[in-house]
Design a protein around this nucleic acid. Structure first.
Ligand code: MN
Ligand code: MN
Ligand code: ZN
Ligand code: ZN
Lengths: 141, 141
DNA sequence: ACATAAAGTGCAACAATGTTGCGTTTATCG
DNA sequence: CGATAAACGCAACATTGTTGCACTTTATGT
């Protein structure tokens, strides 16, 4: 697990400081294949850090195109890592997401493309979101 | 505007009581072509009613298939009227929705169908949501 | 019209998410 | 090493949504 190196490079590449908190946060994202909310992170962090710090780091990561919003239901926003090809700024996904009704995890469906919108040109479409729900692969077996 | 009659019938058809608050709420939904949140409703109601009452009415309407969730971003849930053919229970939409980045209104795109999901059968899909964003027809002109 | 039961309402209290301001600490770079 | 900007922690706050409980209103049947 030389994620440590990767994370340092990632932060540095975006002009962000490599602090223990942010390093641990990004390690958490790399260790999970589902999206994480601010409170998920607070719960999984070893030391007890302030919620505000986590919120600000998430915002910063989103602003720099390191994380994207994978889902935002009533219970809050869940983030997931962006791909290496993602632009260095906030952006919408080109892939679909799946929310499990049982375990409430959100998965990125990297290989399911968001369908093209077919809509009256009275509307200017700049973002599209395609979210599936049901029972995930884990809960299904 | 004989919506009054329609509303009475609608409530009665679902075994709900026809109270002034619920009547006014449904009238509000009929008078707008975009979705409304609980706080939108509180603000638009003539008398000052308790938020809790509005929340409970919205839940009841959703449970009976009178309203559906048109969007739920971080700022809350917005509801819109269901079609006449909708089942008498909570259900997911078959149409897309549009969220304006400028006025922040949510519109039902009744004639834009939600694309069929094409996904690994490790996942059991029971719901699909397709949400577009950008600039709406009002803000565009 | 009246009694009754069920549904709806209001108030208080609470939990969770997310924000802002401000003073302090820490990382990075010359 | 010292300066600067970023990051952190704390307190305080706003908003959304929930729950419990007592009270009121609506619908129903006699
Ligand atoms: Mn994703
Ligand atoms: Mn709709
Ligand atoms: Zn699951
Ligand atoms: Zn608009």
């Amino acid at each position: 697990m030389d994620n440590k190196k990767l994370i340092g490079d990632l932060l540095h590449a975006h002009g962000l400081k490599k602090t223990p908190i942010r390093t641990e946060m990004l390690a958490l994202f790399m260790d999970h294949d589902f999206a994480l909310s601010a409170s998920d992170i607070v719960a999984k962090m070893t030391a007890g850090h302030d919620r505000v710090t986590i919120y600000r780091a998430l915002s910063s990561f989103e602003k720099h195109g390191i994380l994207h919003r994978a889902s935002e239901d009533g219970q809050g926003i869940k983030y997931a890592l962006c791909g290496q090809h993602c632009p260095d700024e906030p952006h919408t996904d080109k892939h679909a997401h799946f929310i499990c009704d049982e375990c409430h995890q959100t998965y990125c469906l990297e290989d399911v493309k968001v369908p093209k919108a077919n809509i009256s040109n009275e509307f200017s479409v700049t973002g599209v979101s395609y979210t599936l729900s049901g029972i995930c692969k884990q809960c299904n077996r």
